[in-house]
């Protein structure tokens, strides 16, 4: 009984996802691109890098990368803590 209910909910959700995928704007024609145009036009003079993606990751959205580095550090510390119980040293 519970399994049947779950399958019904899953099918409804899949139908919703497929409908959304059909109804979204056409692929390859973004609607809002003012911010990205600014980044592309000004990345070289403001961040002094040819690679616009790197200048966004490390300059415009530097706080994002800082939090991400923290998450990576925490995850590595968690793995080492969870598996170190048998006295294996790294």
């Amino acid at each position: 009984m519970r399994n049947a209910l779950g399958i019904v909910v899953f099918l409804a959700f899949t139908f919703f996802l497929l409908t959304a995928a059909f109804e979204i704007r056409p692929f390859g024609e973004p609607v809002h691109r003012e911010m990205d145009n600014y980044f592309i036009m000004h990345a070289q003079e403001e961040a002094s890098a040819n690679n616009v993606v790197t200048s966004i990751v490390f300059d415009y959205r530097g706080f994002d990368t800082l939090g991400e580095a923290t998450v990576l550090f925490t995850a590595v510390a968690g793995v080492l803590m969870a598996l170190r119980s048998r006295g294996v040293k790294t």
Binding site: A47, S48, A49, N50, T54, S55, F58, D59, T65
Partner: peptide
Amino acid sequence: TGGTLAYMN
């Protein structure tokens, strides 16, 4: 070139 971006990389 690159400034701090190269160091951060």
